[in-house]
Amino acid sequence: MNAGRLGGLLGISLPVVQGPFGGGLSSVALAAAVSEGGGLGSYGAHLLAPDEITDLVAELKARTARPFAVNLWVPQEDETRSWPDLAELAPHIRRLRPYHDALGLPPLAAGDLAPVPDFDAQVDALLAAGPPVVSFVMGPPPARVVAEARRLGIRVLGTATTVDEAVALERAGVDAVVASGADAGGHRGAFLRPVRESLVGTFSLVPQVADAVGVPVVAAGGIADGRGMAAALALGADAVQIGTAFLATRESGASPAHKRALGSPEARTTVLTRLFSGRTARGIANRFVRDMAAYEDAVPPYPVQSALMQSIRREAGERGRADLGSLWAGQAAPLTTADLAARDYLTRLLEDFHRARRRA
């Protein structure tokens, strides 16, 4: 299959990008499998320290000689960089106490919370490690990063949730734009306007972005099978980025409970919530989301809320407590198939794509 403009740009043979997952959901095995299958495997590294990023890129290079991407979050101005004191944190900690008790976890203390790694140090380590592709969400990469990546021959992808964001990314010098519709699972990357003003569906967003920019466009959100892939390419995308369906594969780092939930009837209902990280993200509505719905606007911003929730998310995953964990999922989650190897999923995706093209 011809991967078109993006294939020539990135050196991939299939117009398929695996969505990057943070919070332990990415895996080297998954990224390598997708890259070896001809797509662009990806790894979400926004919570990794600089030395961990160095090791990650080395491990990916050892697992595949094909192109892969490593993803970082661009810091936003509204995110707290200084940690609240204990008095400020106390009501948020008390609110979470019943869930710590339910999971057998000790109560949180302010000293248990660690700030996220420094973005500048992360990106310096990433560029020095030399992955074939770097990708960014939450904003345009800094000019110095784009310039250094270009000097090193590293391709740069940026993620847009609106047409204006896509134009801003092209002006910033990215090599391709990921047009991420509101259907997509996980964190929303809006950076020019609030999330509530940036919720454009994938199949409305893609043709507008394709008309507005000259760089290749990757359609993301609500694409889980060959029908969605065919539709995205017909609307002007050069490739598709698929997240939730790859999250359901054997190689992903998602917990068994999370993977089971993706293909369940519960996955028909997803919500946008700030409860797990302090940033808006799409996931399956479960007991925690419903119990805490009244506090959507009260929880602290990222990264404070993310740190407050870290032990609950981790323990819920380890104990198979789908009712209490963050079950990130896009609106096409019911179309996913559990327990497929990533290469088998790619094969099925392409077969479905060709069938859909023939029907059209």
Score class of each variant (00 low, 15 high):
R66D: 01
V215N: 10
L169M: 07
L30F: 06
G24M: 12
A332Y: 09
P140F: 03
P207E: 08
A90D: 15
A293G: 07
V289I: 15
R155Q: 05
T336Q: 04
D120H: 15
G111E: 14
A90L: 14
L72D: 00
G222T: 10
M309P: 01
Y302G: 00
R357P: 00
F353L: 15
D118A: 13
G201C: 10
A149E: 08
V145H: 02
R319H: 04
V178H: 00
G39I: 15
D291H: 14
P207Y: 12
R314G: 02
A109H: 15
P265C: 04
D291M: 01
A32H: 11
A69I: 07
A69M: 09
L40H: 04
T280L: 15
P75C: 12
S198E: 11
A294T: 08
K259V: 03
Y43A: 01
G226D: 07
A333T: 03
G263R: 10
E79I: 10
L108G: 01
A58S: 13
R144Y: 10
A32K: 12
V17Q: 05
A332I: 09
R63F: 00
P334Q: 13
A329D: 06
Q18T: 02
L14H: 11
P256A: 06
S180G: 10
T280G: 02
R279T: 03
A168R: 11
A307M: 05
A128G: 05
V178K: 06
V206Y: 02
L108K: 07
A220M: 02
F246P: 07
L30I: 05
S35P: 08
D124R: 14
A322W: 09
V200L: 13
P301C: 14
D51T: 10
M229N: 00
A90S: 09
A179G: 11
A342H: 05
A267L: 06
R319C: 00
P91I: 09
A239K: 05
G325A: 15
E251I: 14
G181Y: 07
G186T: 12
Q76F: 00
P334H: 12
A322E: 15
R274C: 01
L6F: 10
G214C: 05
A168D: 14
A294R: 15
G283I: 11
R66N: 07
I223P: 03
V209S: 01
A248R: 08
Q241G: 04
G4Q: 13
Y43L: 05
L126S: 10
A45R: 08
V123S: 00
A184D: 01
F119R: 13
R171K: 12
V70S: 01
G186V: 08
G186C: 10
Q208Y: 06
R279H: 02
A114Y: 06
D225I: 02
L30C: 12
R94P: 01
P300A: 05
G263N: 07
G283K: 06
A248W: 05
K259E: 01
A149H: 07
V217C: 03
S264V: 08
L205I: 08
G153L: 12
R151H: 11
A172R: 09
R274Y: 10
